[in-house]
Deep mutational scan, measured.
Amino acid sequence: RRPMNAFMVWAKDERKRLAQQNPDLHNAELSKMLGKSWKALTLAEKRPFVEEAERLRVQHMQDHPNYK
């Protein structure tokens, strides 16, 4: 499986939080909310998630050198 990108790293915990706050929302609505929230973040706010995604990408390359 591919490593998570920055959005997916961020959305993993954010989706849980949103789902707890909005138990009646379907996954499609949660995804739309997550997309809008991600776009609203500044580059500085996204940076930790971008860095974690890069760390995961490098780790994935080391763990699976033949993955394409």
Rank of each mutant, 00 (worst) to 15 (best):
M8Y: 09
S37L: 14
G35C: 13
N5C: 07
K46M: 06
L25I: 08
F49W: 13
N27F: 08
K32G: 09
E29F: 00
F49E: 02
Y67A: 15
P48I: 00
D13T: 09
N5W: 03
L34S: 02
R17A: 05
A28Q: 14
K12C: 08
T42V: 00
Q62A: 10
D24L: 08
V50G: 03
V9A: 06
H60I: 09
P65S: 14
E52L: 04
W10K: 04
A28F: 10
S37E: 13
P65G: 12
R55S: 05
R57N: 15
N66C: 12
Q62V: 15
L41A: 02
R15P: 00
E52H: 03
N22A: 04
S31E: 15
K32Y: 04
E45T: 01
R47S: 06
S31L: 09
R55A: 06
P23R: 05
E52N: 03
R57C: 07
L43V: 12
E14N: 08
R57A: 11
R1D: 15
H26W: 03
K12D: 05
V58R: 10
R57M: 14
N5K: 04
V58G: 15
A44V: 11
T42D: 01
P23A: 07
E29S: 04
A53W: 01
H26C: 12
A44W: 06
M33G: 02
S37T: 12
M8P: 02
G35M: 12
F49S: 03
M61I: 11
A44Y: 15
T42R: 03
M61R: 13
D63Q: 12
E14M: 05
L25W: 08
D63A: 10
E54R: 07
D13N: 08
K32M: 12
L56H: 08
M4H: 08
Q62K: 10
G35T: 14
L41G: 00
L43S: 11
H64P: 05
Q59K: 09
D13S: 09
W38Y: 01
V9C: 11
K12Y: 06
D24P: 01
V9F: 07
Y67Q: 05
R2L: 07
K68R: 00
V50Y: 15
P3D: 14
M33Y: 04
R15K: 12
A53L: 02
V58D: 11
E54Y: 07
V50H: 12
L43I: 14
A40H: 05
H60S: 13
K36C: 03
K46C: 00
P48H: 14
E14L: 01
V58M: 13
L41V: 00
Q20E: 10
K36T: 11
K68D: 14
A19T: 11
F49D: 06
R17N: 01
A28Y: 06
D63N: 04
L30Q: 04
E45H: 08
W38G: 03
L43D: 15
S37N: 15
T42G: 07
L18R: 02
F7R: 05
A40G: 08
V50K: 13
R1Y: 02
A6K: 01
M33C: 04
S37W: 02
W38A: 09
F49V: 02
R47P: 01
P23M: 05
L43Q: 11
Y67T: 15
Y67I: 09
V9H: 00
L34R: 02
E29M: 07
L41M: 15
A6Y: 02
A6M: 01
F49K: 00
L41T: 04
M8Q: 14
L25Y: 08
P3V: 13
V58T: 12
P48K: 10
N22P: 03
K16R: 13
Q20A: 12
K68L: 13
L25K: 08
T42A: 05
L56K: 04
E54L: 06
V9D: 05
A6I: 01
K36M: 09
V50Q: 12
E52K: 11
L41D: 01
F7W: 01
L18G: 01
E14I: 02
V50S: 08
P48T: 04
A40S: 11
K16S: 08
K36S: 10
R1W: 09
L25R: 07
R1K: 15
Q20K: 04
L56R: 08
R2C: 10
V9R: 02
N22G: 04
L43H: 15
D24S: 07
F7V: 01
R1S: 09
A6Q: 03
A44E: 13
E52C: 04
L25Q: 01
E29A: 08
D13I: 11
P3L: 11
D13A: 11
M61P: 09
K46A: 00
M33W: 01
K68W: 11
M4A: 01
K36W: 05
N22Q: 06
P65Y: 08
R47K: 13
K32C: 04
K36R: 11
K68C: 06
R2G: 10
A53G: 04
D24Y: 09
K32F: 02
L30W: 01
Q62D: 15
N5H: 03
L43Y: 05
H64K: 14
A53V: 03
V9M: 08
A19R: 07
T42I: 01
K32T: 08
A53N: 04
R2I: 11
K36P: 03
Q59R: 09
L43R: 11
S31W: 14
F7T: 03
K16F: 06
A6P: 09
R57W: 08
A44R: 07
S31T: 13
E45D: 12
W10Q: 03
V58P: 06
A53Q: 05
E52S: 03
K12T: 10
Q20T: 12
M4N: 07
M4L: 13
R15V: 05
F49I: 00
R2Q: 03
H64D: 14
A28P: 10
E52V: 03
V50N: 06
L18S: 01
H64G: 13
Q21K: 14
L18T: 00
N22E: 13
Q21G: 07
K46L: 00
E29T: 04
G35P: 01
D13C: 03
G35S: 15
R1P: 01
N66M: 11
W10Y: 09
M33P: 02
N5S: 14
R47C: 06
L34H: 00
K16H: 03
P3A: 10
L34P: 02
A40C: 07
W38R: 00
Q59T: 14
T42W: 00
E51S: 15
E54K: 06
N5R: 02
R15H: 02
H64Q: 13
S31I: 08
H64C: 06
V50L: 12
A53P: 02
H60F: 12
H60A: 14
R15A: 08
W38K: 03
D63C: 02
R55C: 02
L56M: 11
L30N: 05
K36V: 10
K36F: 15
K32I: 05
L30I: 13
A28V: 11
S37I: 14
N5V: 01
N27Q: 12
W38T: 02
N66T: 11
A28G: 11
H60E: 15
L41N: 00
L30G: 01
D63V: 08
E54A: 10
H60D: 12
A53F: 04
E45N: 03
T42L: 03
N66K: 13
E29G: 09
E29R: 04
P23V: 05
W38V: 02
A6E: 07
L18M: 09
L56P: 01
P65M: 09
M4I: 14
K46N: 00
E52Q: 07
M4G: 09
P23N: 01
L43K: 15
N27M: 12
S31D: 06
E29Y: 10
L41Y: 00
E29V: 08
E14F: 00
A44D: 05
K12A: 11
R55I: 04
S37C: 12
N22F: 09
N27R: 08
A28C: 04
P23D: 00
S37V: 09
K16G: 02
M61T: 12
R57I: 04
L25T: 08
K32H: 00
D24G: 12
M8R: 09
E14V: 01
H64N: 13
Y67G: 13
V9G: 01
Q59N: 07
Q20Y: 04
M4Q: 06
E14W: 00
P48F: 05
L41S: 01
Q62S: 13
R15N: 02
L34K: 00
F7C: 03
K12F: 14
V9W: 01
K68M: 14
R1G: 14
G35L: 11
S37K: 15
L18I: 13
N22Y: 15
N5G: 08
V58H: 13
F7N: 04
H26V: 03
T42C: 03
K68V: 08
E54D: 09
G35E: 15
K12S: 11
D63L: 06
W10V: 02
L56I: 08
F49Q: 01
A53E: 05
D13Q: 15
S31H: 12
L18N: 00
V50E: 15
Q20G: 10
L30P: 00
Q21S: 12
